[in-house]
Design a protein around this nucleic acid. Structure first.
Lengths: 347, 347
DNA sequence: ATACTTTGTCGAAACGCTTCGATAGTAATA
DNA sequence: TATTACTATCGAAGCGTTTCGACAAAGTAT
């Protein structure tokens, strides 16, 4: 039994069909140069008749554009069960589709060894631009330098690179102010991995809000596990510590939702009622926040939108400039994406 | 300020450096044909010295291989908050990386209109193989026919295509047998969207287990919402219906975890204790199952592994056959991936 | 009518690789 | 020594586009 394999038609076939030169067909399909309306429609008809589409590979080789964007993220970040970075990734996928690009995903290890771990798409010159999500090893950036490819960071800042970042400080501040408004004055802070700028900024926002209210920081209420990542396992340890405080604080601001869920767990296990005995606020607004017990008050981060923004921004950076201009460092622009406090039953 | 743009070296440069012909370099980098050890090392040294990597685009055009795999999934499936298909996707990403391929992701609408929605990578001949995850519009397959490209389905079966599927029947059966073992005889079934083969198979497994135990099916305990998808919203409606039964069944088997979580919710809200008042079992073992209250007994589906398997399988299908052999339909092979019952506190 | 500009189309080079048939050089066989 | 069979390397065609300079044809100003 045979499958019908339709030999796919080339620009040559279209040119023959429309009785024009190959280059004319190219001009039409790329909407470049002057082609008379009459010829244009003739070419378009021929193209449709033969259901012609330019082959990517040929186009790439000839034009130097690949139509691909590289997405780089640390493997340990990407496979976390809380879907923070994968939502960002999906955001880029979504907008890339609009821009008719494809995303090539690569995860790199936490400890990056230059030549050895170089993403294949860089070596093979298979991307027109690169998005780096989250904190990655600085060694990676030294490699990126020489590539002469537009780069946008997401949720991370570095040197002169452009970036799309979260308004962590504002978000944290709003969350804590909300707790203060509700009459809480004894507010704990739960955090981990403060080496990540995004996370330390949240701590700053916490402090700012406390101070702005004329309160002072109580070191006993600052519960941080600096070695651990802000994930379930660490959260269990931290919330254990939180509840072994005496007296228990009346409210807690958690550096992200994953930690906040752990606090909800522990509270329930100890027979404490949220929010009456203790109010809990998180950060990120992952899908589960809506469905927890009680639903979690948290700071919404527009993850998909950040991905989208990065793509748009990359596009701008790529089309704005002629290749030679790309040689100049145009300085970095950082977009700070606002957050939104979502008040639910946990506070 | 200038960025250093290292003009990347080509095969020509390497040939010059090693003082051999271009074709010899190609033979070495592709490990093809006869090249003497002496020449080989000379070429490799030159390549390393110039840090040469073949350009993807050039290689594509010349060899006809793109090094890309297309991943097709319905957009509504992919963006669900339960991360079923995105885990499968990650599995493919993971294994594709091993095989030195890239995955091009495309979501297609639920209602597929042939020409209009054709994935770009198909038109542009930019993939060597295709993975289709989950149920998609049959119209899509009619398009796939003529492409002459290897295809593997995941979690879906269709005509003569090869597929990687879940042992839904076995899994469901094991889950229900587990409940029977615990002494339950009044077991309800919660389901939705039974048009998806994976889901109707789970129902079959349920029925089989009940019958095998010598019990008979109680229609009042079969609670199905056929129009809705098995997600949170539907789940709330279904569990509402479940608890309005009198008497309440002592156990319930849910078609997936998303529905099971809703049951846990509703039970808690009504002051019922799980598993004493009602035992709950789900299907899929999404990450949250481990962290729910109580942790959910469920049937684990190896999602990432299914993705991996699909890639390996695709590879086999692609390398086994010379292009001309590809013209023959070699019949389909279906791999059924076993499931595992994970017993937790909810039963 | 002449010179100059604009418009629309074309031919050919170039992109960087793979691949295949050709060809020397060497070893084995008659 | 003449023939055959490998072995190792090479040259060149070809993949399907884009792009740039050339060039007629048509239009405009002198």
């Amino acid at each position: 039994m045979f499958r019908t394999v339709t030999k796919c038609s080339t620009i040559k076939d279209v040119a023959a069909e429309a009785d024009v030169a190959i280059s004319t067909v190219s001009l039409v399909t790329n909407r470049k140069g002057y082609v008379s309306p009459k010829t244009t429609t003739r070419v378009l008809q021929a193209a449709r008749k033969l259901s012609y589409s330019p082959r990517r590979a040929a186009r790439n080789l000839s034009s130097g554009r690949t139509g691909n964007i590289g997405f780089v993220v640390r493997s340990d970040h990407f496979t976390r069960s809380e879907t923070f970075y994968s939502r960002i990734f999906l955001g880029t996928e979504f907008e890339a589709d609009n821009q008719r690009w494809y995303i090539l995903l690569t995860t790199i290890p936490k400890e990056y060894v230059p030549i050895e771990h170089t993403p294949r798409f860089l070596r093979e010159r298979n991307v027109d631009g690169i998005i780096v999500a989250g904190k990655v090893d600085p060694a990676f950036f030294t490699e990126l330098e020489g590539a002469g490819i537009p780069v946008i960071l997401i949720d991370f800042e570095m040197d002169a690179y452009s970036a799309v970042v979260i308004d962590n400080l504002g978000g944290a501040r709003a969350a804590v102010e909300h707790l203060l408004d509700r009459g809480h004055s004894d507010i704990a802070f739960l955090g981990a991995d403060m080496s990540h700028p995004s996370l330390s900024e949240r701590f700053e926002g916490f402090q700012l809000a406390i101070h702005a209210a004329g309160e002072s920081l109580n070191p006993a209420r600052i519960i941080i596990e600096d070695k651990g990542e802000p994930v379930y396992k660490t959260g269990m340890v931290l919330s254990e510590r939180l509840f072994s405080c005496y007296p228990t604080p009346t409210a807690v601001f958690c550096i992200n939702d994953a930690l906040a869920f752990c606090v909800l767990d522990q509270a329930a296990r100890r027979g404490l009622h949220v929010p009456d005995d203790i109010a809990v606020v998180g950060f990120d607004d992952v899908p589960r926040a809506e469905q927890s017990h009680p639903p979690l008050t948290t700071v919404r981060v527009y993850k998909e939108q950040m991905g989208e923004l990065a793509i748009r921004y990359l596009k701008e950076q790529m089309s704005d400039l002629s290749p030679s201009q790309l040689l100049y460092d145009r300085g970095s622009h950082t977009v700070k994406v606002p957050t939104e406090l979502i008040v639910r039953a946990s506070s």
